[in-house]
Amino acid sequence: MKFTMFDQQMWGNLSFEKIGYDKNNRVFIIYLLNGQQLEFSGMDERTVFQFIIAQDKEIFIQNFLLPNYKYIQREAEVS
C-alpha cells in the first residue's frame, strides 16, 4: 500500500494527516488523528485523485465518500 501525508496546516485538515491506497485491491484508507481508520472498499484510482486534489478534503469525505462507498471504521492496527 502506498501512503501520502498531508500537512494539516497547509490543507486545513482537522481529522487526518495520512491516507493509503492499494490499487490492486481498490482499498482506500484514511488514518484519522483519533487513532481510527476509515477503510473504503471498491475505490477506483480516479476517485482517490479527486480526493487528493479536492480543496476541502473533509467535506469531500462527508459529502462524497461516506454516502457513496462501503467502508469500515476501525481502531488503528498496532504494528
Rank of each mutant, 00 (worst) to 15 (best):
M1T: 02
K2T: 05
K2F: 03
T4A: 07
T4H: 10
M5S: 13
Q9W: 02
M10I: 08
M10G: 00
G12I: 07
N13H: 15
N13F: 12
N13S: 15
L14W: 03
F16I: 06
F16K: 07
G20L: 09
Y21V: 09
N24M: 05
N25H: 13
N25P: 00
N25D: 15
V27K: 11
V27F: 01
F28C: 09
I29K: 10
L32A: 07
L32F: 06
L32V: 00
L33M: 13
N34P: 11
G35K: 15
Q36V: 00
L38Q: 05
L38Y: 13
E39H: 02
E39M: 15
E39V: 15
F40L: 07
S41Y: 11
G42H: 05
D44Y: 01
D44V: 02
D44I: 05
E45A: 11
E45P: 01
R46G: 11
V48P: 06
F49P: 00
Q50T: 03
F51R: 01
F51V: 05
F51D: 01
F51A: 04
I52M: 09
I52V: 11
A54C: 05
A54E: 08
A54I: 03
Q55K: 12
Q55V: 02
E58N: 09
E58H: 09
F60E: 06
F60H: 02
I61A: 04
Q62I: 09
L65I: 08
L65C: 08
L65Y: 04
L66P: 02
P67Y: 07
Y69I: 07
Y69K: 11
Y69H: 12
Y69W: 15
K70F: 03
I72M: 06
I72W: 00
Q73L: 14
Q73M: 14
R74F: 05
R74H: 06
E75Y: 10
E77Y: 06
E77R: 14
E77S: 14
V78H: 10
